[in-house]
């Protein structure tokens, strides 16, 4: 159980925060964004950090989940949970079909393909206005209810999104430490050697692509209900880049790195709000500086530094 000690502490903190600070804006409002972003970053990290496959279009799947929920519940009057499942099925099918040809590509080509996918989906949200409401988006989603309890307040959303986030973190930690996770790392390390060890690399990549897209789509559905509103702006190319930044900032290949990265980048706008127009500049600067000077990411670098200090102290005593 030592394996999950870090997770247990993290979960306890997350679940206790609203109890200790029930009316704190940062907990109950910003917290919701943070949880969604953590989930997305963790799902992207499965693909980018573990399997080493860059994606500049992750927001597309988040958006497809959100729009599926909005369209199916409002236009077709479906039950929210059913809509969510149908959205998930749609994303599973789409990401599966696309996964093989896309993930055959590497490096810059893969970056271009995922970027193109993200942009096409975004343009679709903007242009297909009969279905998607165009640039204005769609409002008025029905309230989601769980076991007969309507999720209609920030605090209830806090626990729903927190649970989903914790689940995704737990899944990610479990995968890291398993046969499937090692297969992903092997693909990252050397695809040829992975194949020689009997790993069907195309299949492994495709599965993690679908899994990660599915996690993002479900987050999208929850996001749509929580915001009660979807519009193309939330799922743009820039958001995909922001997700990549979260993963890289924390440290590629580390689940808690993705958590930390998502946390910092979600808090940042709140902090930078005093500078207003500086936000874009600072954001770009962070991305560059981290990648140039701490290519392993904040979390991983800090962890390594701490480990080094501990071992030094061990030698000294």
């Amino acid at each position: 159980m030592k394996r999950l000690a870090g997770f247990a502490i993290f979960a306890a903190v997350c679940l206790l925060l609203p109890v200790i600070f029930p009316d704190n804006y940062y907990v109950t409002v910003v917290g919701l964004t943070i949880f969604l972003n953590i989930t997305l970053a963790v799902s992207l990290n499965l693909l980018m950090g573990y399997a080493g496959q860059i994606s500049l279009g992750h927001a597309a799947f988040f958006g497809l989940g959100a729009y599926s929920s909005a369209i199916l519940t409002i236009k077709y009057g479906l039950n929210p949970w059913l809509a969510m499942i149908l959205g998930a099925v749609l994303v599973i099918c789409l990401s599966y079909v696309l996964s093989r040809p896309i993930l055959r590509l590497k490096g810059h080509y893969l970056a271009m393909a995922t970027l193109g996918l993200g942009i096409i989906v975004h343009i679709f949200f903007v242009q297909a206005d009969e279905l998607t409401g165009g640039p204005d988006g769609i409002t008025g989603l029905p309230t989601l209810s769980l076991f007969g309890v309507a999720i209609d307040s920030d605090i209830k959303w806090y626990f729903v999104l927190c649970s989903y986030m914790l689940l995704s973190v737990l899944f990610s930690l479990n995968i890291a430490d398993s046969r499937a996770g090692r297969a992903l790392s092997a693909v990252h390390g050397s695809e040829i050697a992975a194949q020689m060890m009997g790993i069907d690399t195309a299949k492994v990549k495709s599965h993690i692509f679908v899994f990660s897209a599915l996690m993002a789509a479900l987050a999208g559905s929850l996001f749509a209900h929580q915001q009660d509103f979807v519009s193309p702006e939330s799922f743009s190319f820039f958001f995909s880049i922001e997700l990549v930044t979260m993963v890289v900032l924390g440290g590629l290949g580390s689940t808690f790195g993705a958590v930390l990265g998502a946390f910092i980048l979600s808090i940042l706008p709140e902090v930078l709000i005093v500078f207003e127009d500086f936000e874009v500049l600072v954001f770009g600067l962070i991305l560059m500086v981290i990648m140039i000077f701490l290519p392993e990411g904040l979390f991983v670098s800090l962890k390594n530094r701490a480990a080094m200090m501990l071992s030094k102290r061990g030698i000294g005593s």
């Binding site: 995968i175 046969r179 090692r182 790392s185």
Partner: peptide, 20 residues
């Protein structure tokens, strides 16, 4: 872990079972 990847063919857990 490198060598555990070598055991890939002698084990069977898939992605979902690993996640759970």
């Amino acid at each position: 872990e490198n060598v555990m990847v070598g055991c890939h063919l002698r084990s069977r857990t898939g992605l979902l079972a690993s996640a759970l």
